[in-house]
Computed example of a mutant assay.
Amino acid sequence: MTRQIHFTETGGPEVLRLREVELGAPGAGEALIRVDAIGVNRADVMFRLGRYFYLPRFPSTLGYEAAGVVEAVGEGVTEVVVGDSVAVIPAFELTEYGTYADRAIVPAHALVRRAADSDPVEAAATWMAYVTAYGALVEGSPVAAGDHVLLLAASGGVGLAALEVANRIGAVPIATTRSADKKQRLLDAGAAHVIVTSEENLAERVREITGGRGVVTAMDPVGGPGIVETIGSMAPGGRLLLFGLLDPRNDPSQALPTVPGVELSVYTLFPVTADPERRRAAITFVEAGIADGAFQPAVDRTFDLSEYVEAHRHMESNSQFGKIVLTVRH
């Protein structure tokens, strides 16, 4: 039997339940992994609330990231073999698979081999954050060396990964936070500049930092009315990438406003992870950064699998600095 977290209605963390299920054997193109650590993401929270870009089908599990060991493979699987240490990357929908369990069946194409002696907690905290940052800053319309990049609400997993990605490609990252307590930590994490938005005017500070030009690219996980001020910090022809859309005032049924001189779009990593060639390129980029020490996943706090409600409450407190990870005892 497998312990698995699921929910049968949308709502707060209290709707999550732990159940025991029979997983069965992996099907064609699938692998069964023993899960040792699970990355907790904002996407999980939004999915649980019914505010994600697709809705759960009940009973539903959740979880895009994990690290563990392959215990069985289905027909046609060549990516991994039994005994491989692996990490799970977000390359599927939560209506099909989920990693909040002590064992999970996932598509084999969503697995990345890792060293057997690597830390499963760090591995579970890597792929959502770094591939999101890669797709936004490196792929497609890449940020050039010397360009200023604005990273809003930068103390989350994606924001901290984006700081490291921006530095790796020679860009100049400007981080924002509402809390002055996080300013020095963001500077220590690689931000060239930090703007405390509860104390400073965002657009004015960005213009000051960039010599009046504005930023070429901005990554905003919140959205809502605050995008007006963000747009005021953009350079002509700049890109504002909205991801996460955490502000409850966001209405996904409404078209994005047209802003002359600014490219405004909703961004996700899934076009990258769904395409085999793009996924391989992203994995290569992230693994290179890990190998040379440029990328060091920031873990805020770990919780035992049985503490899944507390982990989600901690996520919703917005007090974390880095990723939240569930650990599994076998």
Score class of each variant (00 low, 15 high):
118 S>K: 02
111 L>D: 11
141 S>Y: 13
57 R>L: 13
87 A>I: 07
63 G>A: 04
72 A>P: 03
138 V>N: 00
108 A>T: 02
83 G>M: 08
91 A>L: 08
92 F>E: 09
109 H>Y: 12
73 V>E: 09
39 G>M: 06
73 V>G: 06
134 Y>S: 06
123 A>R: 14
98 G>M: 03
116 A>D: 11
139 E>G: 07
77 V>S: 01
121 V>L: 03
78 T>N: 13
95 T>C: 04
103 R>P: 12
131 V>N: 12
83 G>L: 11
49 L>H: 14
118 S>H: 02
110 A>M: 10
145 A>G: 13
97 Y>F: 15
119 D>R: 09
135 G>F: 06
107 P>G: 11
48 R>G: 08
65 E>I: 12
150 L>T: 07
33 I>T: 05
139 E>H: 07
68 G>Q: 08
127 W>Y: 13
148 H>N: 11
37 A>Y: 02
132 T>C: 04
59 P>I: 07
92 F>W: 03
79 E>V: 11
51 R>P: 09
38 I>W: 05
77 V>E: 04
90 P>A: 09
65 E>Y: 06
85 S>D: 02
53 F>T: 15
118 S>Q: 05
30 E>S: 06
142 P>H: 13
116 A>P: 10
74 G>S: 06
126 T>D: 11
111 L>R: 09
43 A>Q: 10
81 V>Q: 15
136 A>G: 06
145 A>E: 14
133 A>T: 11
103 R>N: 05
149 V>M: 05
128 M>N: 15
140 G>E: 06
85 S>V: 00
127 W>A: 10
109 H>P: 01
89 I>R: 05
58 F>W: 02
122 E>W: 11
100 Y>C: 01
105 I>G: 12
65 E>K: 13
42 R>H: 13
42 R>K: 07
130 Y>Q: 06
127 W>N: 08
97 Y>P: 03
84 D>Y: 04
151 L>I: 15
72 A>W: 05
32 L>Y: 07
62 L>K: 04
80 V>M: 01
86 V>N: 02
140 G>R: 01
37 A>I: 00
44 D>P: 00
42 R>E: 01
103 R>A: 01
114 R>E: 09
75 E>N: 14
40 V>L: 12
46 M>C: 06
119 D>L: 10
46 M>Q: 15
107 P>K: 08
116 A>V: 02
107 P>M: 05
123 A>I: 15
88 V>M: 03
116 A>M: 00
113 R>I: 00
88 V>E: 05
75 E>F: 14
65 E>F: 01
67 A>N: 05
140 G>T: 06
107 P>Y: 03
140 G>F: 00
104 A>D: 06
58 F>D: 07
38 I>N: 07
121 V>C: 03
140 G>A: 00
75 E>Q: 15
51 R>Q: 07
119 D>Y: 10
94 L>H: 02
114 R>F: 00
94 L>D: 02
79 E>H: 12
144 A>L: 15
114 R>M: 14
84 D>L: 10
143 V>A: 15
65 E>P: 12
96 E>A: 15
136 A>F: 06
135 G>M: 01
103 R>I: 04
105 I>L: 06
58 F>H: 01
60 S>Y: 03
99 T>S: 08
116 A>L: 10
110 A>G: 11
133 A>E: 01
123 A>M: 15
70 V>L: 09
114 R>Q: 14
127 W>G: 01
38 I>M: 08
136 A>M: 15
38 I>H: 00
